[in-house]
């Protein structure tokens, strides 16, 4: 059985935020809530790196461990989903998650209420009938049941963000790394133009 994962290639991500836009549009995610976002390290400095981050669908997910109502679960494909009907909005999952994936669209409200937790579903919907209105309203589109991958990865222009079975993603990434080399071989003038900058003058 497949073990679904995301893989973001930091050498390729150009911080276009296309994945963020695609996710928000596909699932009609409200203002102020980002199931996915792009994080840039050393912004503006040569060699800066960007990464697209969402729920990483951990194999040993801390959110599942801390949920007091036990409504977060793993599907057979390794996707971490949750039942919004049983969510009490305590926010424990938010504190436990190392990636800041859980979002609270209805908070903060009066008396510190947060509402139901919302997060990336790997475009796999949730515990409602596949393709039903209830599923779309609560969890967003179920692309996995349509035989498709998450839209953020499928529309990534540089194919920095990959999604799918972990073993197959490893094969793709391995081949990519072998072809392009590593470190300064992987980006910059030499890779783009094949000559040293001084020689090219």
């Amino acid at each position: 059985m497949a073990r679904m994962k995301f893989l973001c290639d930091a050498e390729r991500c150009i911080e276009c935020n296309g994945c963020v836009t695609a996710c928000k549009n596909e699932h009609e995610v409200p203002w102020g809530v980002n199931r996915r976002r792009v994080v840039t390290i050393n912004d503006g400095v040569p060699g800066e790196r960007s990464m697209s981050v969402a729920c990483m669908h951990c194999s040993d997910a801390p959110c599942i461990a801390v949920c007091p109502t036990n409504v977060i679960y793993h599907t057979e494909e390794g996707v971490v989903l949750h039942d919004k009907d049983g969510c009490i909005g305590c926010g424990y999952c938010f504190y436990a998650c190392p990636f800041g994936a859980p979002q609270f669209p209805n908070g903060p409200a009066a008396f510190g209420a947060r509402g139901k937790m919302d997060k990336c579903t790997f475009c796999a919907g949730g515990p409602e009938e596949n393709h039903s209105d209830a599923e779309f309203e609560k969890y967003g589109r179920n692309r996995l049941a349509q035989g498709k991958l998450p839209l953020c990865a499928e529309m990534c222009s540089t194919k920095a963000l990959l999604a799918g079975d972990a073993a197959e993603l490893s094969d793709i990434f391995r081949e990519r790394a072998l072809r392009r080399g590593k470190g300064f071989e992987a980006w910059g003038w030499m890779t783009a133009y094949g000559k040293d900058k001084e020689e090219a003058k």
């Binding site: 919907g125 009938e129 035989g147 991958l149």
Partner: peptide, 28 residues
Amino acid sequence: GKTDSRPWEGGAFNGDKTAWERALHDRV
């Protein structure tokens, strides 16, 4: 929580798990 239906149940694949896996494999 509530039980979830599997991705290949209902919809386009109608319970055909092999077809679903093949479709997903091609996409990956």
